[in-house]
Amino acid sequence: MIQPSNSLIVAVVSRTMIPYLQVFALYVIFHGHYGPGGGFQGGAMVAASLILSRMALGGERAEVQFRSAWGSPLGAIGALLFAAVGLVAVFFGGEYLNYAYLPLPLDDPALLRSYGILFIEIGVAIALTGTLVAIFDDLVEGHEDYD
């Protein structure tokens, strides 16, 4: 487990930054289907904020927000969400990932596609956050049981 940083500046700056980072990341995720950004970038930013909190605040306090053990299951769940949304379209008569067939109470196929993508983006974001944090934790742990 990572020890908290000794530097006051690092601690204060990162503690201030992390919430803003995460809010902005959420904006990037939800804005993604009609502007630059999206699940991947947003997820990466969420992961970056979590990793920053691990590095600056130390493992113990970072675990409060995001447990190490959640990493890989979340990665799987996010990807599963992505794949499942695609499959739902199949069950409602469309091709795989054809969001126009999603069972949402909307009439316009274009809108349907738009909101369908939102689900996908959320899935991607969750998957990316989980996976990246898991990779980070894994790499860090890899050190510690060796030293």
Partner: peptide
């Protein structure tokens, strides 16, 4: 889009890794 991603990934995640 690509620039955004490249910034997040290349300068962020990769550097951290």
């Amino acid at each position: 889009d690509v620039g955004f991603t490249e910034a997040v990934v290349g300068a962020g995640i990769s550097a951290v890794l």
